[in-house]
Structures are given as C-alpha cells and as structure tokens.
C-alpha cells in the first residue's frame, strides 16, 4: 500500500513538473513571438534633427528630377532626390549611409541603393567620406521606375545601427543590427520646382 501511495506521489510530481515545464515553454515562445513582431516606427518631425547611432540627420527637401541631377545622368529619365544635412557622430570618417533612408513608396520594387552626392562647392563627389563632427549637405538619389508618377508627399524611414565593441566573427568594433529609428514625411516637389532641374 505504501509502495503504491509512493508511486502516486511520484507520478503526481512528474505530472506537475511536466505541466509547469509545458506552461513555461508556451509562455517563452509566446513572448518571443511578441518580441519579434515589428513595431511601427515612431513619427518624427522632419524640421528637426534626428539622431541615429552614427548620424545626426536633418532632412532639407525632397523632389523629383529628370534628365540629370547634381552631375548624375539618369538612365531611365527620372529620380527621387532627398537632400539632407548629415553630421558624423562617430569617431572616424565614414560613408556608411547607404541604408540610412528608405523611401516607403514611390520607387520600383527592387529599391536600389541610392547614389549619394556631396553638395558642397558644386564638385559633386559621389559617396563622400564624411568626417567626424563636420556637417555636410548631401543628396540621396534613387532612380524611379519608368512611367511612374511622382507622389505629392512621401514617407521616409530613418534607420539606425548599434555600436558593438567587438563583432562575433573577428572581434572588431563596428556598427550592426540596423533598425528603423522612425519615419518622417516630406512634400515632394516636381522637376524644376525643387531648387534644381
């Protein structure tokens, strides 16, 4: 009799342990799923400076251009241009701004990386290295799909990276894990109205 009651106790213990573990696993998976659910990026004021990990960004103007813009010949005729003031917040010269802005719509599905042009002195250097603490005005130029109508206003997502003192592969410092920091909306001027042709 005592043996049976001992067995019952043990079974009860096993069952309780099993149920507890199952609940813990389910709660853990549920939390993980909730955690990976992308949150909508915060809405930012386009008239103010936006701080990302590497850059202090101030959007200046958005417009579409036809033919040529800032010394760049456009293959398919049209491009979307975003002008912005960029200040490098890191300790070293960088040109890691290729994915800083992402237009939400208004481009073809592939969303190629923009061509970035420095607007100082009209020399038009492409992919300029921006030095720490020195602000520069640059233009981000995305080609538009053929026959696409330019939107009247457009939302841009601003991305931010996080500093890691050592990466997992080589132990080198760097900026990783790009995440949206927010989004802002700018009116898009048609060709000829955005300050340049």
């Amino acid at each position: 009799m005592t043996e049976f009651s001992g067995l019952g106790q043990r079974l009860k213990g096993w069952l309780l342990g099993g149920v507890g573990a199952a609940i813990a696993v389910i709660v853990g998976i549920g939390l993980a799923i909730l955690g990976t659910k992308p949150k909508p990026p915060a809405t930012l004021d386009a008239r103010q400076s936006i701080a990302t990990g590497q850059w202090l960004v101030r959007p200046l103007a958005a417009y579409t251009a036809a033919g040529a813009v800032h010394g760049i010949q456009l293959k398919d005729g049209r491009a979307l241009v975003l002008e912005a003031q960029l200040v490098n917040r890191t300790a070293e010269t960088s040109s890691d701004y290729g994915t800083l802005f992402k237009p939400e719509t208004g481009l073809d599905g592939k969303r190629p990386r923009p061509t970035v042009v420095l607007l100082r002195d009209g020399v038009g250097g492409r992919s300029p290295g921006l030095h720490p603490g020195l602000g520069e005005r640059v233009a981000f130029i995305w080609p538009m799909a053929k026959g696409q109508e330019p939107p009247a206003s457009l939302a841009f997502v601003v991305n931010s990276k996080r500093y890691k003192a050592m990466d997992n592969l080589k132990g080198l410092p760097g900026w990783f894990n790009e995440q949206p920091a927010g989004r802002f909306t700018l009116a898009v001027a048609p060709p000829g109205r955005g300050g340049v042709d």
Binding site: A91, E92, T93, L118, V123, P128, G129, H131, P132, G133
Partner: peptide, 9 residues
C-alpha cells in the same frame, strides 16, 4: 581620438 581619413574631395 578622432580619426580623419584622407580627403576624397
């Protein structure tokens, strides 16, 4: 500790 690369301009 600020590191400035050679200017590309």
């Amino acid at each position: 500790g600020l590191t400035f690369h050679e200017s590309d301009r």
